[in-house]
Nucleic acid binder design. Structure first.
Length: 422
RNA sequence: GCAGAGGUCGCUUAGCCCGGUAUAGCGCCGGCCUUGAAAGCCGGUGGGAAUAUUCCCUCGGGGGUUCAAAUCCCUCCCUCUGCGCCA
């Protein structure tokens, strides 16, 4: 949600942004209109309350002196009626204003490329080499012959898009997690294991409202949603608080299982463990002063790049365009791994600068000499295990069916260097 | 889950019994002092609306009683202590 002062002082910045997104600006006009009405109600209410307070004082004085109060009491009852009517209208107007305001997307950074969909994304850089694999097998086949996962029985007891990770592949997942955690520890990110359930109110602070239908699972009959990423609890953690951000930004490494409905996703490219309802992810989360957020965005992106360079995987960095970026982020970069079997680049990391969009909704501020200010929030994948595993399986497959384990992971695999076909 | 005690401005805390504009300390910011700093002293330090100046809101959330609620009543949430249960 955008700060109200943007609508009041610089609405053109929103209108221009929506033009770049090729989106309607009706909703912005609605917010501005409702805000004016709300302010008129507030003023009227303040006047009534001022009257009420002064009459109330008068009554106190009169009673102290033992004088008659019936005439002022009568005046009071008229004011109280008007005030309760006004309070109802004021609240309604504020609710309407903020319902509309919630639907206005973040203002994008000016350099975000313009485009209709993912086809408009810009490749920024590429890393590693694609290798030379003869007849590469897709990861869902490799999983079978190394006995790395059991999707069939997972489907029997849970449903499609679930899996048992088994043996060396499960060990490899733990190695990836440890690899990411140790890397971020060295960069001063505080490891944080969050709650996996969050209530609706907190959740509204960090996501697009559509996500409630399309992404998060709701616990039946209870005000709980399963988290879709540790970014959500880590960012919502300081809701309604005034933080002390000294020099250093607040930096966290979140780790959790993530739960996603994946509504509407189908197709060949989603087989195996690429798109699943449940997966582990190490996430980077930063809360910082506005002036630091661009720098921190680069840091998060560089961390992801270094992690995947360490894994010796071929990947590229993509600058996400206006049509593909969504409502919350002001700038977003993805890392896309090269998948030899399908000959496609596929998303493995997403790094977003949300600016103050989340902190406004969360009512999370930090103290400055002049008062309070909304901090910027940023998030980026460090390693999402299932996708990293799929990329490793496809890129590291050998002619004899074995999989070489990236060197940086050996220390968490008891020195094991490859996974053999069973 | 049961019983008791609690939730007050960034943090700590007084006020609650007995209703009438929220107290003090710490931290932070500014000023004085100083070669510089510390200490000391002085002032400021939640949010909103409009501004020569003001006005309003804010004591965990919601509701009620009252001319008037941090204070009384109801309700929900959370924390602590003890008991119970438990990986």
């Amino acid at each position: 949600m955008l700060e109200m002062k943007v609508f009041r002082e610089n609405p053109d910045s929103i209108f221009n942004d929506l033009k770049r997104r090729n989106a309607s600006d009706e909703i912005v006009k609605e917010v501005i209109k409702l805000d004016k009405k709300w302010r008129a109600f507030i003023e009227k209410g303040n006047g009534l309350r001022a009257q009420r307070n002064s009459i109330s004082k008068e009554i106190g004085e009169l009673k102290k002196q033992g004088k008659d109060t019936s005439s002022v009491m009568e005046k009071m009852s008229g004011i109280k009626d008007k005030l309760s009517q006004n309070e109802k209208e004021t609240k309604e107007m504020l609710d309407l204003r903020d319902q509309a305001r919630m639907r206005v997307p973040n203002i994008l950074e000016e350099s975000v490329p313009i485009g209709e969909d993912e086809g408009g994304n810009n490749e920024v850089s590429s890393h590693g080499s694609k290798g030379n694999i003869l007849n590469p097998k897709p990861h869902q086949e490799i999983i079978e012959y190394i006995s790395g996962a059991d999707l069939k029985r997972a489907a029997k007891i849970s449903g499609r898009r679930f899996y048992f990770l088994t043996g060396d592949l499960a060990r490899l997942e733990m190695a990836l997690i440890n690899y990411a955690i140790d890397y971020l520890y060295q960069k001063q990110y505080t490891l944080t294991i969050p709650p996996f359930f969050m209530n609706r109110e907190a959740y509204e602070g960090v996501v697009d409202l559509n996500d409630f239908e399309e992404v998060m699972y709701k616990i039946e009959e209870q005000d709980f949603y399963l988290i879709a990423t540790s970014e959500h609890p880590l960012t919502a953690r300081f809701k309604d608080e005034i933080l002390e951000i000294k020099k250093q930004p607040l930096k966290y490494a979140g780790i959790s299982t993530n739960f996603r409905k994946e509504v509407g996703a189908h197709g060949l490219s989603d087989r195996g463990i690429w798109r699943v309802h449940q997966f582990a992810k190490v996430e980077q989360v930063v809360i910082c002063k506005p002036e630091d957020s661009e720098l921190m965005h680069n840091e998060l992106l560089n961390n992801a790049i270094e992690l995947f360079e360490g894994l010796e995987l071929p990947f590229r960095v993509v600058d996400i365009c206006t049509g593909d970026i969504g409502t919350v982020a002001a700038r977003k970069y993805d890392l896309e791994a090269w998948m030899p079997a399908s000959q496609q680049w596929k998303e493995i990391v997403s790094a977003s600068n949300c600016k103050s969009y989340q902190s406004v909704r969360l009512n999370m501020r930090y103290r400055t000499p002049e008062g309070t200010e909304y901090p910027h929030t940023l998030n980026a994948t460090a390693i999402a295990t299932t996708r990293a595993l799929a990329a490793i399986l496809e890129n590291n497959q050998k002619d004899n069916g074995s999989i070489t384990i990236p060197r940086v992971l050996h220390k968490w695999m008891n020195g094991q260097e490859k996974i053999e076909a069973q």
